[in-house]
Amino acid sequence: MPRLNTNDDGRTFTPPSAEETISHPAFASVIWALEPHQQGTVEVAKGRGGPVKIAWEIHGDGPTKVLFIMGLAGIKTSWQRQTKYFGHDRSNEYSVLILDNRGMGDSDKPIARYTTSGMAADIVEVLDHVGWTAERDFHLVGLSLGGMIAQEVAYAIPTRLRSLTLMGTTAQFESGPAKSWSDAMWQRLSFVIPKSEDQSIFDTGRKLFPEEWLAAPDDAASLPSPKTTSRCGPAPGTPDGEYRTFDNNFQRFQAQELFKKRHASWFTQQGFLCQLIAAAGHRKTPQQLKTMADRVGRERILVMHGTVDNMITVPNGEKLIKHIEPGMGLIVEGMGHAPIMDRAEWLNALLEERFTAWGKL
């Protein structure tokens, strides 16, 4: 069984097995019952090898529009901490658009060569479908592969963005301290080397989050409450409608991964590989980034990266900040790859403050 080192004194943490987590009382409610205000599918890419059905949801009906784009192998529910915060707790202020990129979740999973520009074109068609077409109409937030796609969306329709936030992403995928072409290729191949389910989720967790957070008790601060009047429904599968906590943060992440992989058709290895190829092939030149920033407006751009991001290392974020010269560039000490989970409260407050400031421009 793999272990985590939790601090410098050598103490270790042994993660639970998949079977233990599936049997946990909290497993049935790991995906929060956040009812969309609008939802549907739209056929895109009809002249680009399609049609491809893309599943989307809008949470909230407020005037401030926010589009969240998820990363590699992520699905709509990966944003549930942000969906609840903006689209339910503040539903009169925000409208939150989330979607499944091609290859994952409820969207189609064609076996083809995916590109970040093609996936961005899918999203532009979704935006057209839901009517988010005005000038400076919506805030765009992209994480990891979603940040690469967001760069392409911003490059294609820059003046429709009210703001652009890029988190844990890159202009050209470089994962880890590769010293040569062969090192870089080996790091990419590490994503597809066959592993046990337990080992695969364990390794992914260590790339996404700081080990201290993974070993810490489950942070239930953002859990929905069945006693509130928001659109959070009762927790599915729990007799009393309660959202229960797991034993630790790793187990909550593990449960989300297991729920996704065991849900019929949400996750396929082919879809994962097609998305991985899109990430590996993404490239925006310094000139393209400059052009994008000129047209979006640098004062409307936030680039954020963590110093302990083990999925896309911090030099990638530093390069983005150098070439984009955003209004706000943050290199956050001790932050990993996915602050949407381990720093959700801080991140949500930061985004809310920035959305308010950008809304005044």
Rank of each mutant, 00 (worst) to 15 (best):
N7L: 04
A150V: 08
A293M: 12
S95V: 07
Q199K: 13
A73W: 05
H139D: 13
P286T: 04
I69H: 02
G60P: 01
R48L: 13
F209Y: 15
P177H: 12
T115H: 10
V314T: 14
E197M: 13
S182A: 15
R231V: 09
V52E: 01
L140F: 00
S225F: 04
A18T: 00
A279V: 15
R295P: 01
H337W: 12
R11Y: 10
S29A: 15
W56Y: 12
A216Y: 01
E125R: 06
G241M: 04
D219Y: 07
E197S: 12
Q82N: 12
H37P: 01
V52R: 00
D9E: 11
G334L: 07
L67I: 12
T165N: 07
G205R: 00
A216N: 06
T77W: 09
F202H: 10
R81T: 09
L320N: 03
L289C: 11
L273C: 05
D342A: 00
I54V: 14
I149K: 06
R162M: 11
T204I: 12
W266F: 13
A255R: 03
I75H: 11
V296W: 06
F267A: 08
V332I: 15
G241Y: 05
Q151K: 07
T356L: 13
S17F: 08
S175Y: 10
S107G: 07
M341Y: 12
V96S: 02
I312N: 13
W346S: 05
G49T: 03
G329V: 12
G297E: 09
T285W: 03
E19C: 07
S144H: 06
T14P: 01
Q38V: 05
G49Y: 09
A235C: 09
Q82C: 07
N316V: 01
M328L: 14
N101F: 06
I111V: 11
A112T: 14
A112V: 10
T170H: 03
M335L: 14
G62W: 06
Y94V: 08
T159C: 03
G60E: 02
L302N: 00
F68N: 02
Q251S: 15
A184V: 03
D61H: 14
L164M: 00
F173I: 00
M119L: 15
P286R: 03
I75V: 14
P326T: 11
D106K: 13
L208Y: 00
F202T: 01
L99M: 14
T170L: 01
N92S: 14
Y114M: 05
P234R: 04
T41V: 03
V153D: 04
T307W: 03
G233H: 02
